[in-house]
Design a protein around this nucleic acid. Structure first.
Length: 659
DNA sequence: GAAGGAGTTGCTTAT
DNA sequence: GATAAGCAACTCCTT
């Protein structure tokens, strides 16, 4: 390790803030002669993760805001956004800048761990000392895993017991009052451009992605974050603005309302409320680290203590704000324990196996899902797309999905409603499909919470009361009997009488006409005869589907397989399921992880011949010729998508063995 | 180890 | 209009 004055890279990642950052504090404690606050523009994020324009915009907002805050502390400094992935850039910077220390906040996402391990290896080779501090969660997720006997926390009780063992939640640290100068930023190093293919975000772009094409410092040479235009995407549509200063101001207002903060109960907040929403909308800021969860926690805790002393009403965990933050830690701990397998059913020791429609394709060599899916039924693929686009014909569901697409944020209970509807309480489609859509569209997406919540709602992990099923009609009505939320996000229905707004297909034709809308078709047409607006009929009979799902869940629970069951791994799971059971269950030899066949399997054993003749049910059920269409049944023009793919082609993901 | 109650947030009908 | 019971039924936690 270098002696003398410290020259430090502070590598910002999901900690875009100055307040309460143990890692940043550690960097400052080195009293460096040069501190380089950098962001490595990671091609995983640009090409390989599902990131819609709204989350990109939110990230850029956070980066710009942080950069300005740094500059306020030191005119020479800012957040230097460097247009190259960390794994190729950092080794060059270590040399050029004569770096002695690399400091960053710990990230337990499976992908980030692989990347960080590689970076730490490179730092070691370069003689650079690495300092990693935990700050993304209330407790260090790895400590929680240890305290929970090496296992993922699968309930709130387990999380609390583990948390109690780990100890008190660290007190927040004040934002620094000064920041050292950076060193010479006139870089004379070659930019290594990452591999742009496959580009999983290509479908969201209307022009070519160009964030790497003007060198490491960007088109103006000022290390500014790329613009949305550079990413080739159309302008963002979210009204939510990222940034540490934005959220700290928001939080001040929330905390100033001590009644709201002290008595907050999540189940009593309305999913139908908008302008303003009923919850604090801090999740995207927590995701990007613009808000510290520990800072938030201690602020809320102080208010609760104060109200307790004054004998005023307080709400309690798990429903209150403290409880919400704890659930976040529970999911992070589960992810930390399970690694990549946490985000999929296949090879997941803690996720129940259900023979869902539209199962994920599998790579048996690395035991990971490939990012695309098998279409076991054309009808189910249509239902999935209608769900995703907000044209199911169930206005409550469609309003939620359209708000999600437009704004990038929806209420937690709204997420419950549409997730239940897609999976165990409606379409019986794999939760992995839903999680991928949320990954693309949510501005607050983080794998741990998204995957955890999808498993929860699909009753594959964390929760099991599948007979408690959300109705796409009754649930919304309970919160919003007049349907104002639907009127806002499904404007075709804005003049529909309240009596029919949750089930417009039941409105008599004269009422439809008076409301200026025709309830007709499958959502592919938006305008009917005479310029009348069109809104689709329901894509299925909900009570019928609910019954099918209940039977399917009951049956799958009874069989009781988990994702790492040998039968799930080798495809023999089909033997345990009756041919007539819901999902691609016909025959006795399926593919791994719930695939109908081995046709869609990559990897060494992927060419395993399936000897028996297949007559997939999809044919009879959906009128689709699945036997013929099966290999081609991948979405037309569907690029291979991937939510947790390899990093920049720089290294292979490590498969996480089953527990 | 068995038994009973609890579990962040269901829906419908009866009182 | 609020509250409770019944629905059919899961796992986990505590006693």
């Amino acid at each position: 390790m270098a002696k003398g004055a410290a020259r430090v890279i502070y590598w910002f990642r999901t900690d875009l803030r100055l307040h309460d950052s143990p890692a940043l504090q550690a960097a400052l404690d080195l009293k460096p002669e040069a501190l380089f606050p950098i962001w490595c523009w990671d091609s995983h994020y640009v090409y390989r993760a599902r990131v819609g324009v709204n989350r990109f915009q939110f990230l850029i907002d956070c980066q710009n805001d942080l950069s300005q805050s740094i500059t306020k502390l030191n005119k020479k400094s800012k957040l230097f956004v460097m247009r190259e992935p960390a794994v190729t850039l950092l080794p060059k910077l270590f040399k050029t800048w004569k770096i002695t220390h690399l400091v960053f906040e710990k990230d337990t996402d499976a992908y980030a761990r692989d990347r960080d391990n590689q970076v730490m290896e490179m730092a070691k080779e370069a003689g650079v000392e690495v300092i990693v501090k935990s700050g993304r969660t209330l407790w260090d997720s790895d400590d929680l895993v240890k305290a929970n006997g090496g296992k993922p926390t699968m309930s709130n009780t387990q999380l609390q017991a583990a948390g109690a063992k780990v100890g008190d939640i660290a007190r927040p640290i004040d934002a620094p009052k000064s920041i050292p100068d950076p060193g010479d930023m006139n870089l004379n190093i070659e930019q290594t451009q990452p591999e742009p293919e496959p580009d999983f975000n290509a479908k969201y772009r209307d022009s070519e992605e160009a964030s790497y094409s003007s060198g490491i410092a960007g088109p103006k040479g000022d290390y500014a974050p790329p613009s949305i235009e550079e990413l080739g995407m159309p302008a963002a549509t979210t009204p939510h603005k990222g940034g540490e200063t934005v959220v700290l101001k928001m939080l001040d207002e929330i905390l100033a309302d001590e009644d709201y903060t002290g008595t907050f109960e999540k189940p009593k907040t309305s999913p139908a409320a908008f302008e303003p929403q009923s919850t604090c909308l801090t999740s995207p800021y927590l995701h990007f680290g613009a808000l510290s969860c520990r800072y938030f926690y201690h602020k809320v805790e102080a208010i609760i203590e104060k109200r307790n002393k004054a004998k005023e009403n307080v709400s309690k965990p798990p429903e209150n704000l403290i409880g919400q933050l704890r659930f976040r830690d529970m999911y992070f701990c589960a992810q930390a324990a399970l690694g990549y397998s946490f985000a999929q059913t296949y090879n997941n020791s803690h996720c129940r196996f259900i023979p869902w429609h539209l199962p994920s394709k599998i790579n048996t060599s690395n035991k990971l899902i490939t990012g695309s899916y098998e279409i076991d039924s054309e009808q189910k693929d249509i239902e999935f797309k209608r769900w995703s686009n907000g044209t199911t014909g169930f206005p409550w569901i469609d309003a939620i999905m359209r708000q999600l697409r437009q704004e990038g944020w929806i209420h937690h209970l709204a997420r419950h409603s549409v997730a239940c509807f897609l999976t165990r309480g409606g379409a019986y489609i794999s939760w992995e499909r839903g999680a991928e859509v949320f990954e693309e569209l949510l501005i607050d997406h983080e794998t741990a919470c998204n995957v955890g919540n999808w498993q929860w709602l699909s009753c594959t992990a964390f929760y099991s009361q599948f007979y408690r099923c959300y109705s796409p009609v009754a649930f919304g009505k309970k919160w919003d009997p007049n349907g104002d939320y639907i009127r806002k996000y499904v404007p075709e229905l804005k003049d529909m009488p309240a009596k029919y707004i949750f089930e417009p297909h039941k409105a008599p034709l004269p009422d439809q006409k008076a409301a200026g809308v025709q309830i007709k078709g499958d959502g592919t047409e938006t305008e009917g005869a005479g310029g009348l607006k069109m809104y689709p009929k329901p894509m299925f009979d909900f009570p019928t589907q609910r019954e099918i799902c209940l039977q399917g869940m009951k049956n799958a629970y009874h069989i009781g397989m988990y994702g790492n069951d040998p039968r799930v791994m080798d495809g023999s799971w089909k033997k345990a399921f009756d041919d007539a059971a819901e999902g691609p269950t016909e025959g006795s030899k399926g593919g791994p992880g719930g695939l109908e066949t081995w046709d869609d399997v990559e990897g060494e054993e992927g060419d395993d011949p399936v000897d028996e003749p297949k007559t997939p049910k999809a044919r009879g059920k959906a009128g689709a010729s699945s036997k013929q269409s099966s290999p081609k049944a991948t979405r037309a023009g569907h690029k291979r998508e991937h939510s947790q793919s390899t990093l920049d082609g720089a290294f292979e993901k490590k498969a996480k063995g089953s527990k």
